[in-house]
Structure formats: structure tokens, C-alpha cells
Simulated scan of single mutants.
Amino acid sequence: MTDYWSLDGALAEETIVPARFKFGVHGVARVLEPGSTSNDVEPEAKVDAPLWLAAALGRRSMVTISLPETYHERYRRRLNAGAECINLKGRAPYFYDVGNKCNEFLQDLTLSAFLARTYATRYRELVSRGLSTVSGEDMLELQSKLSLEELAVFEAGRESVARAELWARGARPRATVAVLPTRKRAAATRDGAEVAGAARQKA
């Protein structure tokens, strides 16, 4: 389940997915599809709904959820052909999250295997390569192809490499010293002296 406070999780659930109603529903057609000529949804009607709504209706067995186009066979073949064949950031920024959420209802083992294989391939070919990329132009081109999930991993990797390089050069993080205002510093000194005096008396 998506973390309630996760902005990325909320944005991922705004992805539009195809849904087919099992039963007729009154008064919602124009909300789901503003151009609809009727305000009622007929049984077996197909609508495009945000994932959060489709998932909620799916849990109540009111609709069946289908995969968005980017998970269809044509796109799977292109992704299997090579990591750079599809720009996921532009087409499906939350590719893995949305695919896994849809699969909670579809229970498609081939989809699970495809998502895992795609992530492993793109990580190996794109993210790992990006960790050693020096050119700013190459970096921007690479980042433009990554889904937002891949980009988060990529940025974490870049940060780790940068820290490792600083450590190897002998750089150490600077220690920070909290400076108290004059009154608080005086109070802390007085309290410390009182504690020390009490300790001496007990000794």
C-alpha cells in the first residue's frame, strides 16, 4: 500500500487506467468522461479512470482493471530490445509503481516477471553507466529517459559515489558546534557549576 504522505505515491495513483464496469452506475458518467452524452454508466461500459478510483472500485468488485497502453505487448517488445528504446520519464514516469498496483488485481505472473526484468536491465545499462558519466550533456540525456523511480535510485547512487570520492581524498564532514545565545550560555555555565559543586560536596 502506498504511504499516505508520499507525494510520488499520490501522483502515481493519478495515472489513468482503463476500467470496465460490471454493473450500471447512475449519475457519474459525466464526472468520469466530461464529453459523455449520458450521465449514467451502462453495464460493461469502458471508462478511463485515475488509478486510485479504479483501485477503490476494483476492491468492491465493481470494475475490472486493464493495463495502460505502455504495458502492452508492443511496448514490452521495445523495452526488451534495449534499455534506451523507450523514454519512460515522458511516457510512464511511475512505470513500476503503476504496473505493480494494477497487478494487485490482475495477478499476472508474466507482468511481474516483465517488470522485474525491465528494472534489472535498465538499472544495469542506464543507471550503472550513469554513475561514471562525466559529460553534463550525456547526463541530461540519460536522466531524461529514466522513470522517476529509476531517477531516485540514480541520484542516490550519484550521491554515494560523490561521498566515496570525498572520503578517498581524505575529506571529512565538518563538525558543527551549536552556539547558544549569551543568556542561555550563562545559564548553562551556572547550572554546570552548581552540579559540579553538589558533586564535590557529596564526595
Rank of each mutant, 00 (worst) to 15 (best):
T2K: 11
Y4T: 09
L7W: 02
D8P: 05
L11M: 12
L11F: 05
A12W: 00
E13V: 00
T15C: 10
T15F: 01
P18I: 06
P18W: 06
K22I: 11
G27M: 09
A29I: 04
R30H: 02
V31L: 02
L32Q: 00
E33I: 00
G35E: 02
S36H: 02
P43M: 01
K46M: 05
V47A: 03
A55F: 12
G58L: 04
M62E: 03
E69K: 15
L79T: 05
A83S: 13
E84G: 00
I86Q: 08
L88R: 07
R91I: 07
A92Q: 09
A92T: 09
F95H: 14
V98Y: 09
G99K: 15
G99E: 13
C102S: 10
E104A: 12
F105C: 08
Q107H: 14
D108I: 06
D108S: 12
T110L: 09
S112K: 15
L115R: 13
Y119S: 08
R124P: 02
E125H: 04
V127K: 02
S128K: 12
S128T: 01
G130D: 11
L131W: 15
T133D: 04
T133F: 02
V134E: 04
S135H: 13
M139T: 14
K145Y: 12
L146F: 07
V153L: 02
V153S: 05
A156M: 12
E165Q: 15
E165D: 13
A168G: 05
A171V: 10
A171N: 07
R174Y: 04
A175E: 15
V179R: 14
R183I: 08
R183F: 06
K184M: 06
R185H: 10
A186F: 08
A186T: 12
A186Q: 13
T189V: 12
D191I: 13
A193S: 08
A196W: 13
G197M: 11
A198R: 14
Q201C: 06
A203Q: 11
